[in-house]
């Protein structure tokens, strides 16, 4: 996408968690077109990132559904409205334009302009966990990487990958053929990752192409921002040093409020206060739904966010279609709604 390319739409939703996804549905029923941005490389927010396999028991009419299945079903439900997703991108700024619309920029250079903004940022944006190792900051960017943007960066390097989940294993498999040498460090000889990746990693280890060390990182060695080695400690307390010039720690993701704090909205204890009629923030036209908002009696449940999305969409309609009258209709009996859903007879 070109740097200055500007996308104009009715609504931009910040966050593709369950509440952001359901908002596409409620807004779509009311004739509003949505673009959805998320820093993750997938949709589903906490449900898809933190507990895809765990069961949820309190979604009305779904006695049990896993985090991933709920996400998949929401994607199926909103499909008729053809939302446009911008994944792997963080919304970094929100500014009001002279014509009353809102402009957002992402860290990937995408420019979005919309009449309505829905903040569905949950607990904030997902960012990689940083190991609390003294002096690690000095190496970030040159020798310590929390994600892989370009594989070529790692060609012919001596790499240590730390962690035991899917990211650690996927990058072990992808980078092993490029690397001069690759060592995988994990605290135990068990991996919570897709079984086929674990099997593929074990084959590389057996073939001598990857070194597997059961240990934890105890410290870093190097100077001037360039790593030269990593101190390891095994479960007997024995220490050793592995030579390396690049470290990739994959200890999972954690949520940090992030740029939403700089959007110029009122915040209270890292949450966005809203009213309970329209779920609007301190800025008219900017709404907040799901885990990110607060109001008296708020429960951080998926079902609360669904309700909030439905009410928010009523007020959003008045802003996006000021000349049209809002009609209350049931999906069961409205041929108009059924047409939008693509199920009309």
């Amino acid at each position: 996408m070109s740097e200055n390319h500007m996308i104009e739409t009715d609504v931009v939703i910040v966050g593709a968690g369950p509440c952001g996804l359901f908002a596409v549905f409620e807004l779509g029923l009311n004739d509003m077109k949505c673009h959805v941005v998320d820093i993750l490389d997938k949709v589903g927010g906490q449900c898809a990132e933190l507990y895809p396999e765990k069961p949820i028991y309190d979604i009305p009419a779904l006695p049990v559904v896993s985090g991933q299945e709920l996400t998949d079903r929401l994607m199926q439900q909103i499909e008729p409205f053809k939302p446009v997703f911008h994944l792997n991108q963080m919304v970094e700024s929100l500014t009001k334009l002279d014509d009353g619309r809102w402009k957002m920029m992402t860290d990937a250079g995408t420019n979005l302009v919309a009449k309505v903004v829905v903040i569905a940022a949950g607990g904030g944006s997902f960012v990689p966990k940083k190991p609390p190792i003294k002096g690690i900051d000095a190496y970030e960017g040159a020798s310590v990487f929390y994600s892989v943007r370009r594989m070529e960066t790692f060609r012919d390097r001596t790499i240590v990958i730390a962690g035991g989940g899917d990211s650690a294993l996927d990058w072990t498999l992808n980078l092993a053929p490029l690397a001069k040498k690759l060592t995988l460090v994990h605290r135990r000889d068990e991996f919570r990752a897709a079984p086929h990746s674990v099997a593929a990693m074990r084959e590389l280890v057996a073939a001598g192409k990857v070194d597997l060390r059961i240990a934890q990182i105890a410290g870093l060695e190097g100077e001037g921002g360039q790593l030269s080695g990593i101190q390891l400690k095994d479960d007997k307390g024995e220490t050793s040093v592995v030579q390396c010039d690049a470290l990739l720690p994959f200890y999972g993701l954690t949520m940090k409020l992030g740029p939403v704090a700089q959007f110029g909205l009122n915040l209270h204890e890292n949450l966005i206060p809203v009213d309970t009629e329209k779920f609007e923030t301190s800025e008219p036209g900017v709404f907040a739904i799901g885990d990110i908002n607060s109001y008296p009696g708020k429960l951080k449940l998926i079902l609360s966010g669904f309700h909030e999305a439905a009410l928010m969409a009523q007020q959003a309609f008045r802003i996006v279609h000021p000349d049209r009258k809002l009609r209350f209709q049931y999906t069961t009996s409205s041929s108009d709604l059924q047409q939008k859903l693509g199920v009309a007879a």
């Binding site: 966990k129 190991p131 609390p132 605290r187 135990r188 068990e190 934890q216 200890y251 999972g252």
Partner: peptide, 13 residues
């Protein structure tokens, strides 16, 4: 719990 501990640092017995 053991698996979730993989996401912690400085793990001891």
């Amino acid at each position: 719990e053991e698996a979730t501990l993989d996401g912690a640092f400085g793990i001891e017995y």
